[in-house]
Design a protein around this nucleic acid. Sequence first.
DNA 1: TTGTACGCGTTATCAA
DNA 2: TTGATAACGCGTACAA
Lengths: 348, 348
Amino acid sequence: MSDAPLRQRSRRGAGRPTIADVAKRAGVGAITVSRALREPDRVSIELRKQIASAVEELGYVPDSNARALASARADVIGVLIPSLTNNVFAEVVSGIYDGLGDSNLQVLLGDTHYSGMEEERLLRVFLGQRPSALIVSGVDQTPGARAILEAASCPVVQIMELGEDPIDMMVGFSHFDSGRAVTRHMIEVGYREVAFIGARMDPRSQRRLAGYKAAMTEAGLSDPRLITTSTQPSSVTFGREMFREAIARVPTLDAVFCNNDDIALGVLFECNRAALGVPDKIGIAGFNDLEMMKVAYPSITSVRTYRHQIGRRAIDMARAAMAGERPETRVVDVGFKLEIRESTQRGA
Amino acid sequence: MSDAPLRQRSRRGAGRPTIADVAKRAGVGAITVSRALREPDRVSIELRKQIASAVEELGYVPDSNARALASARADVIGVLIPSLTNNVFAEVVSGIYDGLGDSNLQVLLGDTHYSGMEEERLLRVFLGQRPSALIVSGVDQTPGARAILEAASCPVVQIMELGEDPIDMMVGFSHFDSGRAVTRHMIEVGYREVAFIGARMDPRSQRRLAGYKAAMTEAGLSDPRLITTSTQPSSVTFGREMFREAIARVPTLDAVFCNNDDIALGVLFECNRAALGVPDKIGIAGFNDLEMMKVAYPSITSVRTYRHQIGRRAIDMARAAMAGERPETRVVDVGFKLEIRESTQRGA
DNA sequence: TTGTACGCGTTATCAA
DNA sequence: TTGATAACGCGTACAA
């Protein structure tokens, strides 16, 4: 090996073929390779073929970091959700992924663990990537997070909820309305002492609770003792415990609106175990309408929310905005649907 | 504004402060800022303070793309799982995130939808980021994917399963052994016509089925008619349907080992609805031990798997390898645990 | 401990 | 349609 013109053969990375290698092999300029990869239409068919085979032979994979640096935009979308293990958000994320299609967009997923501070921190980290869009959950960002988002030079979509002043775009539904709708239904069916059981009690749960209160008040049935909440994470087990607590406090309660389906399931199992007939003795309603609600015995009334669709529309809106389109409707209400099932079919 | 020395003020990005801006404001060299951010110990306390406040005032956020390009390594870890909405994998991912700690590592998450082709495609995309490590699910990569992983110049961890020849590192447990263990338990308790019901039937499910078959054969109870499988996605609803199908085919079956807990739940609900006593008339066992299994009525026997721990150990191993450590044990068996509950407590 | 020079792999700009 | 050149913002190597 001659060592005179060795020119300090690249300090690292040494090995991976670059766009220059492909260009040389195809007998064209580097920029032509770049174009052939991104906008094939602007390159003649012949060169396109040559380049394609050179890419193939060399096993060339474009360096997305260099690309992002040069173009000042990464094909990356930052997504922030409160919890990955919560099936509800997993489905939203699934909708987002489905909306990616064959674009070579990447998703940067962040789990805030329901913490505004963590959301803010992750936002800062994500921003370092120069993302093409940002999707965040809820409307209750910290002032710092909100400032970051407002200053962000990319589309921002807030999801899951609707609120007064969107940062940019929004896709969600009214938690207040849905909470009120379930409660009204239970009252109409004839339940009188309708309890509310909620865990975690994040902002969205709070709004559902507010909807419950509104319905109870308008029916003249309001009673604070019927409300049981906790900031602890939600689970089936915890749902059972809270129900025991609730019924110990108000032995005459005849129905329960559960903050979510996990809790509803816990209540159902406890009723089965304690031989409290559902729906005659106790009515049960959940929230989110997980797939198993309709199969449970008895099947459980719940509020169907369109999680997958929320994710899907969020990414669609983000991509449209990335493409320069700025649609009229920046706030999309996907609604909800009350699914009435056996657990609230009072025999009366 | 003088326009002579305007020097074509940067083509884009125009706005975001760069490390040079921070350096100027702090009255130091750019490289010192760089060091202050990454290895504070190598910078004097005074300068560190000046730099810190300059960063604060300017709202400087390092460009991770430029950083990755210059250092030839992105603080990114690619993670490939078969399904995001499957709670089992969501928990694995959660364990991975927990193992990130305060490192500024990013996770690139890919959902392969149980497709080897898609896994291979995503792998290629991820590689464009020059990831610091790769985590993939299972041991049944396509030849192409395997080749890519073997050629990857970063640590690779295969998770969820154990196999003969690890690409690099592995964390998981034996699906065969766990399937056999549950089945043996049911046989020991006195069930004779133990059915197997499985959906999706990915490679891991296949191995659990193999474990079931082994146990049935060694007990002389093997009967192919007891096996019901489908490649359809698993769900509670589908679990119920498959159970109906199974019991229609073999009306005398007295127990069911379900491929996963969703299916087990579907079977339980159907038994409740059809007044088939559990566990006396029908024994039920699930797989994964979701939280609700112990709360169900009756509570359901299941195989506890350590999903969170698998994710956690995978990321720990990856990080150790990234730091240059190459531990003796490149294959970690986290085991499993049979949780025996009411659904298989035969009164006999 | 701090700074200078240069390169990382790609794309935007502008000209041919 | 194609190409030469100059950034993009940062880190490595080496010198001070």
